[in-house]
C-alpha cells in the first residue's frame, strides 16, 4: 500500500516536514532530485544542516514516480527550480493529487504565485501552500508553534493540516490561497529591511514602522492579485514577519545586514525575489515603497539614502 503523503525536496525544510509527519506515526516518502543526497540520507537518516534523525516512517525513495504515488504531496523546492520540478512531476500527476508547496516567494521572472505554476504545468487543481512562523531550529527542539495551510479548497486545507498537526504544531486553514502566498513572498523584502535597520542601530519604533507598512504593501498586492487584504495580518504575514524581523541568524536578515555595511548581500535568491516583486508591482501599477527601497539598496543605493527617500515621501493616509 502506497503512503498517503510524500515530500518532494529534501533540503532542511522539506526534510523537517517529512520528519514532523513521520514522528507522529504517519508513513511518508521523501524524494530529492540529488542522487548523492538521497544515498546519504538513506544511509545516515540525518538530513544535512539539521540535528534531526528521520524515523522509520520516513522512506527515502529513489524516483519521483514512487513519491508521486501518494495522494498528498508537499513540495519544498526553491522558486527558481519549482517549474522544472513541476514539469518532471506533471506526467505522473493524477486528478486526485493534492499538492501543497512550502515556498515563500514568487516565480522569478514571471512573478507568478507558485500555485499558478502548478496549474500551468499540471492537471492538478487541488493546490495549497504551507506558510507561517515555523522556525526550523525551534521546531527541532520541540517548541510549540503554529502554521497555516492556504487553499481554495476547504478539504485540502483540512487534510494537509491533519497530517502536520501534533502537540507541538498547531495548523490553521485559510481559504485565501493568494493572500497566503503573497504574505510569504513579502517576507523577503521585510527580512532584508530588518537586517539593514538592525545594522544601522535603529530601534523598535523603526521596526514597528517597517512591519506595519509592509503589512499595508502586502495587503495592496494581495488585493491586486485577487486575494484578501486581511489574510496578510495572519500567521503567514505578520506572524511570520515578526519572527523574521527578530531573527538575526536568518539568512535573509544577515543579507540585509551585509547590505547596510555596503557589502554584497551574498544572497542572490533573496535579491531575485525582491526583483520579482518589483516587476510585479510595476505590472500592477502598485507603489510598494518599502519593497522598492530594498530593491534600490540591492542595486547599490546606500541604505541611508533609501531610508531618507522613504521618510520624505509626501504625507498619505494609512488606508
Amino acid at each position: 500500500m502506497s503512503p498517503h503523503v510524500s515530500v518532494l525536496g529534501a533540503g532542511p525544510f522539506g526534510a523537517t516536514i517529512a520528519w514532523i509527519i513521520g514522528e507522529h506515526g504517519r508513513d511518508v516518502r521523501l524524494w530529492s532530485s540529488n542522487k548523492t543526497k538521497r544515498t546519504r540520507l538513506r544511509k545516515t537518516r540525518k538530513p544535512p544542516g539539521t540535528p534531526i534523525t528521520l524515523g522509520d516512517h520516513v522512506e527515502v525513495v529513489d524516483t519521483i514516480d514512487e513519491a508521486m504515488e501518494a495522494g498528498l504531496v508537499f513540495i519544498a523546492v526553491p522558486p527558481a527550480h519549482f517549474r522544472s520540478v513541476m514539469k518532471v512531476a506533471a506526467p505522473l500527476m493524477r486528478a486526485e493529487h493534492r499538492i501543497i508547496h512550502t515556498v515563500k516567494g514568487l516565480e522569478p521572472g514571471s512573478g507568478k504565485a507558485l500555485s499558478t505554476v502548478i496549474s500551468e504545468e499540471t492537471r492538478c487543481l487541488q493546490t495549497g501552500v504551507l506558510a507561517g512562523p515555523v522556525v526550523p531550529h525551534e521546531i527541532w527542539r520541540g517548541d510549540a508553534m503554529s502554521a497555516v495551510v492556504g487553499s481554495q479548497y476547504r478539504a485540502v486545507a483540512v487534510e494537509a493540516a491533519a497530517v502536520l498537526i501534533s502537540p507541538k504544531l498547531r495548523v490553521y486553514g485559510s481559504l485565501d490561497l493568494v493572500g497566503v502566498e503573497v504574505a510569504g513572498a513579502m517576507r523577503t523584502p521585510l527580512g532584508l529591511a530588518a537586517g539593514m535597520l538592525h545594522e544601522m542601530g535603529l530601534g523598535r519604533a523603526t521596526k514597528a514602522f517597517l512591519l506595519t507598512r509592509t503589512l499595508a504593501e502586502a495587503a495592496q498586492l494581495s488585493e491586486s492579485l485577487g486575494g484578501n487584504a486581511a489574510t496578510v495580518s495572519g500567521l503567514a504575514g505578520i506572524g511570520d514577519w515578526m519572527v523574521t524581523a527578530e531573527d538575526m541568524n536568518a539568512p535573509v536578515v544577515q543579507a540585509g545586514m551585509r547590505l547596510a555595511k555596503g557589502e554584497d548581500c551574498a544572497h542572490p535568491e533573496a535579491a531575485a525575489r525582491v526583483h520579482t516583486l518589483i516587476e510585479l508591482a510595476d505590472r500592477r501599477k502598485l507603489e510598494l515603497p518599502i519593497t522598492r527601497a530594498v530593491g534600490a539598496v540591492l542595486q547599490g543605493t546606500p541604505v541611508q539614502e533609501a531610508l531618507a527617500g522613504l521618510m520624505s515621501r509626501r504625507m498619505s493616509f494609512e488606508s
Partner: peptide
C-alpha cells in the same frame, strides 16, 4: 492537461473510487 496529455478527471471528485460530496469544492470547479 495544460500540456495536452490526456487523463481521467474523475479523481477531482473521487477518492479510492468513491465519489466524495463537497459543495464548497464543486463551487470552485
Amino acid at each position: 492537461d495544460p500540456q495536452g496529455r490526456t487523463f481521467d478527471p474523475s479523481g477531482y471528485v473521487c477518492r479510492d473510487g468513491e465519489v466524495i460530496a463537497d459543495s464548497q469544492r464543486d463551487r470552485i470547479y
